[in-house]
């Protein structure tokens, strides 16, 4: 009982927050109208964002925004309980579940909006447009003149009214939904549960498998961590100066967030070296033989100390440099 009263109190406060009157006849107050036009536009934008934004996290956030606006609309329509539930259950729990799964599944290439099925987009547009026009036309056709309003139904409080209906008229449906929820919970567990039917293979066994399959045996090479960046999104360079795919995390690769530091980057690096050398007044005896233009792949004779983090698998140029010196 106390819960109901607190809910009622909360509802009453939200009514005032929404600034609208739940009770009305054929028209609503100007405040509600304003709220509808402003928030309705935002809701539609959010829905469109859900559909058209490329990144799923952005989609999820747009949807959450739309849902919150819908919660406000529920409150405006006198459905105080549903408004709260919408925020708590939907926006709070369900959307968080979505985000959680998004995180689990990760980012894949399917997020691109490029259509692969022939004619699908046209058909979708046609169907959507037709359906929308029909629905809206049908609504316009229907003679909805007067709204009865919910003053009477909500006389004892919205939660009380709902509870009365749920536990009398809809009690069987209510019980059934309870069963449904339990079943769904069990189903989710059964679906996602994986029984380990075989022994977990040891590290040694996995290594042996890798050897047998002639795969990369030692640990993957480290990314090209430069002092300027100190980041994992820069691939290490192979002896010929091309970036190595192996050195960057696959997720970054599929997202396209890899920074390229090959050819022209090296050129600028070489220019920097030269400027530094001039400034310091250093003489480079091996310069003419191993210029940056004639051999862009090779290290242009920079200081090995500065260059130490450069290429993990790049021992050969270093050695060549040692020789030239």
């Amino acid at each position: 009982m106390s819960a109901a009263t607190t809910a009622d109190a909360a509802a009453a406060s939200t009514v005032e927050l929404a600034g609208s009157l739940a009770a009305s006849a054929s028209t609503t107050s100007t405040g509600e109208a304003l709220q509808f036009w402003v928030l309705g536009t935002v809701a539609v934008l959010g829905a469109l964002g859900t559909v058209f934004l490329r990144k799923s996290v952005h989609s999820a956030l747009s949807l959450a925004g739309t849902m919150i606006i819908l919660a406000v609309f529920y409150l405006a329509n006198g459905a105080y309980f549903l408004g709260i539930v919408q925020i708590v259950v939907y926006t709070g729990a369900v959307m968080m579940l979505f985000l959680f799964v998004l995180m689990l599944v990760g980012v894949t290439a399917e997020d691109s909006l490029k259509e692969t099925i022939k004619g699908q987009r046209w058909m979708a547009a046609l169907c959507g447009l037709g359906f929308g026009v029909l629905l809206i036309g049908g609504l316009g056709n229907a003679s909805i003149k007067t709204f009865s309003g919910l003053e009477e139904a909500n006389a004892d409080g919205n939660v009380f009214g709902l509870a009365r209906l749920i536990f009398t008229k809809y009690v069987f449906a209510f019980e059934l939904t309870g069963a449904l929820l339990v079943t769904a919970a069990v189903a989710a567990m059964v679906l996602t549960h994986r029984e380990r039917v075989e022994r977990r293979s040891t590290q040694r066994e996995m290594a042996e498998v890798r050897v047998r399959e002639n795969k990369h045996l030692p640990p993957l090479p480290a990314p090209g961590v430069y002092a300027r960046h100190n980041a994992v999104d820069i691939p290490g360079l192979l002896p010929d100066g091309t970036p190595s795919e192996l050195t960057v995390n696959p997720t970054l690769r599929s997202r396209g967030q890899v920074r390229d530091v090959s050819a022209e980057a090296l050129e600028s690096l070489a220019a920097l070296e030269q400027r530094t050398g001039e400034a310091l007044g250093r003489e480079e005896p091996g310069e003419p033989e191993a210029g940056p233009d004639s051999n862009p792949g090779g290290d242009p004779g920079g200081d090995p100390g500065r260059n130490s983090g450069g290429n993990a698998g790049n021992a050969d140029p270093d050695r060549a440099k040692e020789k030239t010196k």
Partner: peptide
């Protein structure tokens, strides 16, 4: 909103 959602399902 319903129509937008449905189109999203299709697209």
């Amino acid at each position: 909103l319903f129509t937008i959602g449905a189109s999203g399902v299709l697209i």
